[in-house]
Structures are given as structure tokens and as C-alpha cells.
Amino acid sequence: MERTAVVTDSPCAIQIRGLSKTYKTGFWFTPKVTHALKTVQLDVYENQAFGLMGLNGAGKTTLIKLVLGLLRPTAGSVAVLGGNISQRGVRQRIGYLPELPYFSKQHTGRELLGYFGSLHGLAGSALQHRVDEILDLVRMRSAAGLKVSGYSKGMLQRIGIGQALIGKPRLLICDEPMSGLDPVGYKEMRDIFIDLKKAGTTLFLNTHILDEVERVCDRVGILHEGVLKEVVPISKILESSVPVDYWIDVDGAEAAKLSGMPFQETVRNNGGVQVSGLVLAETLALLTARKAQVKGVRPLSSQVEAYFLKAIGAQAHLNRPIGGRRP
């Protein structure tokens, strides 16, 4: 597997070299050390969308905080937009959505956006105009006059994305942007990302929603237990021949015909069976020979999911259908 990036002409938006982060917690007599990141090497190119995938606790948030200067590296360096994050000019061109966007509860959504806009140097009617634009974009115009304390989780997330976009960033860094959004919001957000990308914004997304990665990202990094396992273009994943799981729908009355099949992972559930893509043809042939009525065959996991699980070496352990796709 290639470790470094595909050769691209675009300059780097984020350049990470030998980055490590160790958390020290506990008291001096019971020290506890967590190696959250281990010598990460990564280039994120301009005008591209980069997706960082990883399980809970893989170190995704740690990486973002290091990029933003909220944490200091134990070792290594980060360059952002050709400079250092401590420079005001660099931060001026960055938008950031934290994992849990908390705001001081006493302000309305509109006031918050106005405030963050003014930190980006906007003022007067230009600021008002931009705030209105953002409120429309994240569909929060009608709730803009409400205090944040009365917002739902998804509404907070929308204002969070709004404040990240208010300064028209060149680089947008989002830590799990889809969390808390309803299915409509989810699609809206995806469209926003795709539009931003078209307009030349660099995206850096932390996520474990693999569907989002597939639709938005150009390149993907797989982080596992603090180690950046691979960085691959999404096209390569989609072309890859990592076996995907399939669900074979068999008539319930014929479930008995499923016994004694040569596949390893069977999940019986109202007359269906889950098989790995590797044995799909074989299984179908066998079922036909037994004269079982196959009603349909559909992939259970996406290519991205299968690739991801294989990369972190969790195929057998974590093989499960994506929520909602199970027949």
C-alpha cells in the first residue's frame, strides 16, 4: 500500500511531518500516558477534499487540534496554508467546526454569527449581508433570533458550520460535521461540501460516516490507533477488489435449504443469508442446484467500508451490515 500521497501538482494546504502527540494524565504518582498520534506524515492538497477515517479514539480529533494549534505536538511539525497556525493571516483563511460546537448560551444564532464574522474583520452591512447568506445556507434563518440555549443538537451543529464558513475560508476543517444532523440536514450538508469544493475550498473532514467519504472526498486517510495506515485516492478504493459482503434473499419457506452451505459467515434472518463477495458466485450456484428460490442479491457494505475495515485489520471482527441496509 502506498503511504505517501498521489503525485499532484497542487500545493499543500496542510503539511504534516513526523507528528506525534502523547497525553500525560493522572497524578505524578500514578502517571498515565496515551500515545494518541505516532509520527504521522501527511499532505493535504489544496482544492481537494480530504477525509480522515478512523474508529473512536483513533486520534482524529487530536490531529485536528494539533493542526489548529489548540494542542502542541510532542514531536514533529505542521504547516498550514504555507505558514504557521499562530499567524493571524493563516487563521483568517481557515474555518473550523469542532467536534462538539458549544457556544455561550446567552446569544442568539444571529448574534453568534455576527460576532464570529467581526473576528474575521467584517463589519457593518457587509457583515449583516454575510450573516444572512450563512443563515440561508445552513437553513437557520427562522431560528436565528432564538437564544442558543433553546437550540437542538442539530441546530447547534448548523450554527457551528455557519460560523466555520463565515469568513469564506480557503481551508475548512470539520470534526465530524454530520453528527446530530437529520437525514435532510445530512444531504444538505453534503451538498454544501460539494459546492464548496467546486468553489475551490480545501476540505478536511474527520468522519466515520463512510458514505460521506465516498461522496465528498477525493483522498482518504485511514488512522488507526494513532498510526496513519494509508492515504489513498478514493478512486483507487472504488476500483479496488476488496471483497464486499452481499445479502442473498431467499424465500422464507425455503430457509431449510440454506443449511450446510460452505460459507463461513452466515446470518440467518427471515430467510436471507450474508456472504462474502469471495464466495458469492459459489453460493449462488449451490442455491440454484438446491432449487432454492433466490429473490435478490444486494451488497451490504460499501466498497469504502470494506476497504477501511481491511486496512485496520478488523474484517472478521467488525463485519456487520451498515445500519438500515439490512433487509
Partner: peptide, 21 residues
């Protein structure tokens, strides 16, 4: 009151990531 929101709930992240020293 502000310690709770700014520091405990990390609202300060949003300010410090902005072009504000």
C-alpha cells in the same frame, strides 16, 4: 459561569481558532 462554558465546555476553541490573538 463563564468558566463552565468557555473552559469546561470548550467554547473557547471557537474564539481561538479565529483570527484573534
Amino acid at each position: 459561569v463563564t468558566y463552565t462554558t468557555e473552559m469546561d465546555q470548550k467554547a473557547i476553541f471557537l474564539h481561538l481558532a479565529k483570527p484573534l490573538t
